[in-house]
Design a protein around this nucleic acid. Sequence first.
DNA 1: AAAAACTTTCATTTTTTTTTGAAACTTTAA
DNA 2: TTAAAGTTTCAAAAAAAAATGAAAGTTTTT
Lengths: 167, 167
Amino acid sequence: MEFKEAKNKFVQTWGALGSQWGINKTMAQIHALLMVSHEPVSMEDIMEELQISRGNASMNLRALMDWGIVYKEYKAGERREFFTAEKDLDELAVKISRERSKREIKPALKVLKEVSTIKSDGTEAEKHFVDQTTKLYDFVLKADNVLDKITEYKDNWLAKLVVKIMK
Amino acid sequence: MEFKEAKNKFVQTWGALGSQWGINKTMAQIHALLMVSHEPVSMEDIMEELQISRGNASMNLRALMDWGIVYKEYKAGERREFFTAEKDLDELAVKISRERSKREIKPALKVLKEVSTIKSDGTEAEKHFVDQTTKLYDFVLKADNVLDKITEYKDNWLAKLVVKIMK
DNA sequence: AAAAACTTTCATTTTTTTTTGAAACTTTAA
DNA sequence: TTAAAGTTTCAAAAAAAAATGAAAGTTTTT
């Protein structure tokens, strides 16, 4: 396989994977492209490589920066902006975890708490509902805490986790 | 908050959460509904509660059964089929992990391996590509293995993990 | 201060995903 | 074996999500 072909395959695959995890395809593709790029890349080049419009590129770059996994760079003597991706995978995973926790898990927990605390002096159905949502709340909270703890290691958290788990 | 209101809120929230993680809304809603239902539920009732068509219900129930997190039940003396969800959360998480690994992570790993093994005697750009995709391959492989190991505990894996991590 | 170079926004269009519903299919009962 | 009761399938419709591109907005240069 040739470099260009391999690069393209990687970008496409990462894009598809993103879709399956609720991240839009272009956003994942831009991220993939930046991750494997040695040098910072201009918006122009991103548009060209992925065959997307300026608006699309702009909005998805903004989103990636909001996630904290893509950075703007300014090159000396250059007017335009360039972009780079977080390339440290530990750091990348930590940031994605934090964002997803903040945006999705925490709000879900709030709702779980609300619905699990209705007072049930009622039927079997109600008792089961309270019981199950309470369990779910506890479970999700615990999982969220574990994730938090794990990613707190910051450096090499995955390697450290391997050691902890495997022994 | 009333029972009915709470139940509805839970189902809606679970549906929205599903969407954000690449699972279709109806599928997540059906799962939510079954999880908090004391008794097995008929397709008729699911259609009624979620206001969806027969086809939609049928297809998403099939998908949930393919994931192994919803079961068909037959009631004695009843013609129609009823459905229940896996209610043990440890088991649920294990099954979801396994399926996602099989459907998404494993294929991604295959591609990563392919693209990271192009021979690069070339430019800086090529060297960086090979280096980065190799790192990514190692990372994803390791993460996949950790997940595998963790969920192997089967019973109470999250609790056991908490103990391992926190100390 | 005007033009040039570039970026962002957002109403509209396009694409993708999901849902519908009617026909085909399957199983049980009469 | 026929009807009844139920389930599945899939082409077409609807809904949702993403992408476009032109206008508006910025910043820099002359």
